[in-house]
């Protein structure tokens, strides 16, 4: 029996009697998400106190195998979910980022407890990273110190809800449904302090201004490395620098309206710049009409936000937090106003 696809897609299509009660029709996203949400395998990976509560959640009283999560895998290659259960230290964040990069997509991160979410009680410590979201994209934050097993279960259910809302068609919310492989998160380097490769430029400028201000010539008369040299030595940095430069280059690139791939890649770059710890407050404002599918307009809302990192007069930039804060506040207010006006237009 030859049926054209168009015919079959019509809701009025008569289903043969022998197939009735045997066929369920749903969207592909829905069935795909249903499968994924109910077999979310966490990585067997404990950091600190929260890991004990995670074990308690896994054991018989709370038992998260009820949600399809009982298979804790010790290898990142087989796990879907990284529960960051405890204080992330600078020494440990290097292996954590490596583990995350090794996880196959789709992958999720749950920050369990105060420390993983923002540093918690140990935030001020010299070896403590103030939250894993400084390095990895976090899907669910579970507050508590430590969160009770009930709270963790709630967080896991929240993650399932989040998965339910994801769609195969919109590549923007879910990087792995997009085009091409995702960029791995650059692995931090343990130098005199931890070095985030994405911030290499800022570190260099800070060092330069610091040296200029205090008129420190380096002990052996060595000049500070030029941008190009350093980037060549550290390839990760080069890539990160390109991503971190707030996609100013992306705006002039006029993507043809019909080239969806180019548009998606540009959006992806914008997203990477936004989530990748880029210092600038970049706002990716997408064209309101989806049919047009034009290249995204990327505006640097606060171009000054990069500059205050190293003011021209060489004043101590790290002490000018107030100024930066004011600018961020202004940028946030501008964004809010823009959103409000957009909403009004919609009405």
């Amino acid at each position: 029996m030859e049926v054209s696809l168009q015919e079959l897609n019509k809701t009025q299509y008569p289903i043969p009697a022998e197939l009735q009660n045997n066929v369920a029709i749903t969207s592909l996203s829905k069935i795909y998400n249903w499968g994924r949400r109910n077999s979310m395998w966490p990585m067997l990976f404990g950091l600190a106190c929260c890991a004990i509560e995670m074990i308690a959640t896994a054991s018989s009283r709370f038992d998260f195998s009820r949600f399809g999560m009982e298979v804790m895998r010790a290898t990142p290659r087989q796990s879907d979910l990284m529960i960051v259960s405890g204080t992330v230290t600078k020494k440990m964040v290097v292996p954590i980022v490596r583990l995350y990069n090794q996880m196959p997509e789709p992958k999720y991160v749950l920050a369990m407890g105060a420390c993983a979410s923002g540093g918690g009680p140990f935030k001020e410590g010299y070896n403590v990273v103030s939250g894993i979201d400084k390095y990895l994209p976090v899907d669910v934050y579970v507050p508590g110190c430590p969160p009770t097993p009930q709270a963790l279960l709630f967080g896991l259910i929240a993650l399932q809800r989040k998965i339910d809302g994801q769609s195969l068609t919109t590549a923007d919310d879910v990087p792995w449904y997009g085009v091409g492989p995702s960029e791995p998160t650059p692995v931090p380097i343990l130098g005199p302090d931890i070095i985030d490769p994405r911030q290499m430029d800022m570190i260099r400028r800070m060092a330069e201004s610091k040296a200029a201000k205090d008129a420190i010539s380096l002990p052996d008369g060595r000049a500070l490395p030029a941008v190009k040299t350093a980037a060549a030595v550290v390839p990760v940095a080069k890539k990160a620098t390109a991503a971190a430069a707030p996609v100013a280059a992306a705006a002039p690139v006029a993507a043809p309206a019909d080239d969806k791939r180019a548009a998606a890649l540009a959006r992806k770059a914008a997203r990477a710049a936004k989530t990748g710890g880029a210092p600038a407050e970049t706002v990716a404002v997408e064209d309101a009409a989806p049919a047009a599918a034009a290249a995204p307009v990327v505006t640097a809302a606060a171009p000054a936000a990069v500059a205050p990192a190293v003011p021209a007069d060489g004043a101590k930039p790290w002490e000018e937090a107030d100024e930066i804060r004011e600018q961020r506040k202004a940028a946030a207010l501008a964004r809010k106003a823009a959103r409000a006006s957009k909403r009004d237009e919609g009405k």
């Binding site: 600078k90 540093g119 935030k123 001020e124 410590g125 010299y126 403590v128 990273v129 103030s130 400084k134 380097i189 130098g191 005199p192 302090d193 931890i194 070095i195 985030d196 911030q199 290499m200 800022m202 570190i203 260099r204 800070m206 060092a207 610091k210 040296a211 205090d214 420190i216 380096l218 002990p219 060595r222 500070l224 490395p225 040299t229 350093a230 030595v233 550290v234 940095a237 710890g277 210092p279 205050p308 990192a309 930039p317 790290w318 002490e319 937090a321 930066i324």
Partner: peptide, 19 residues
Amino acid sequence: KSIFGHNVRYPADIDLSRL
């Protein structure tokens, strides 16, 4: 208060060429 937004501090003579 930190321009990096991270809990880091670097010495003035940090040598980024030898990372």
